[in-house]
Design a protein around this nucleic acid. Sequence first.
DNA 1: CAGTGGTCTAGACCACCGT
DNA 2: CGGTGGTCTAGACCACTGT
Lengths: 262, 262
Amino acid sequence: MPVIPSGALGALDPTSDRAVFRQIADQLREAIDKGRFSEGDKLPSETELVEHYGVSRMTVRNSLSVLQGEGLVFSEHGKGVFVRPRPPVRRLASDRFARRHREQGKSAFTVEADAAGSHPTVDNLEVKEERPSQDIATRLGGPRRVLARHRRYLLDGRPVEFATSYLPLDIARGTQIAEPNPGPGGIYARLEELGHRLDHFEEEIRARMPAPSEVRTLRLAAGVPVIHLIRTAFDTGGRAVEVCDTVMAADAYVLAYQLPAT
Amino acid sequence: MPVIPSGALGALDPTSDRAVFRQIADQLREAIDKGRFSEGDKLPSETELVEHYGVSRMTVRNSLSVLQGEGLVFSEHGKGVFVRPRPPVRRLASDRFARRHREQGKSAFTVEADAAGSHPTVDNLEVKEERPSQDIATRLGGPRRVLARHRRYLLDGRPVEFATSYLPLDIARGTQIAEPNPGPGGIYARLEELGHRLDHFEEEIRARMPAPSEVRTLRLAAGVPVIHLIRTAFDTGGRAVEVCDTVMAADAYVLAYQLPAT
DNA sequence: CAGTGGTCTAGACCACCGT
DNA sequence: CGGTGGTCTAGACCACTGT
């Protein structure tokens, strides 16, 4: 029985130079783009596509793997291949570290999540002294060892980012910053109490495909890149007092910045 | 003859639950990470890997496609599979639209490229009036039609980004902004001459896998995401006077922002 | 020309899912 | 249990590359 919605998918063009698996991928992609399959919908099964197009199963699978690589669909073993829904995105505003927010005593992540009606969680918290990578050391002015605060953030149970903050030992050792819970307002509030009044932050943003370990940590679907953000905090003396290295699931974020025109 | 560098790749673990093609991909990835294959190096051919591991060719190809999806390698028909080199990245500083740069008469792209010793080119320039998408219209305050300036940027011959600027017709129509060459300092200089003194910009950043048309336009390799940047320029009256929609090859860029701590 | 990757076939067995 | 996707085999022919 032909279970493919009538008209949803056309026929192959045998005269075309385009590879068969690409033609099939094109037709499926177009059907998704035009809403003939909606978010969460199940695509025709591999067997159905094999019958519809009269090709071998490997060819069909090749087509589907193209769409997976583009992040358009995901597969579930024993169930089917589905159109990937666009998850809700978290918007990071450029004033998210403004003192006025900090002074209300909550962390930036928690404040935003609450505002968006989501349930935030922090996970895998680990605080320890480490030897920093060359890059981190350079940004902090070259210390041999640093305090590292590792953690993972989840939104409604979904891991969306993991991050590590690095701080010079001469600033952080023995303070509340070296405790798992740094207290109200987070480590930036503690830094200011310790006399390091914050002046500005610098952020560097890259995007790339995730390493396998990042796929596991963020439970990333195929075809989802990561945003790699490195933020350095400077005090009013011009010293770099913290570097925060963050990897985010790109489908969960939009970053917003405001730039002066002057 | 075994042409695989001795010790570069190990043997399969038949007792492992991990799929054979994943084990092979893991070993190749590790060999690349550890520098046993360097940037630009050719990996062992599919035939050599088939012989080394004693598996079928499709299994080997499956392994290689995993690495391609991660952006670690690229293939050239008839030549081989190679370790993908990290291309030089272009750094976009958050002050790149500062008035002091604009007043020197060059566009932001040209100034930066020259500074980096690269040869910049602009391509596929097209200026016309259009009906804006819902999103663009909303950002500009809801005009029915806008002036659109499409173009593509190349660095040393490589396409790295394409962009479209949208401006309200009541501002741009009939001015030099509607000409292919907007003159020294670019459209922002013209906007200020027209009385729209710029106050600030807002930028929104997303990362995702490219659509097929973006792969073509930017000649993207497999496993390279794009950075999607939407910038809105506001004049001192608080009006949005331009929206620039930019898609960048993510492997060619690092974005840098400076945020106040106040 | 021989060697490379690109495409495709026609099977096979397995693990997972829901009924 | 039947249907689904996950893995793998052992071929085949092709197009592209370099010598």
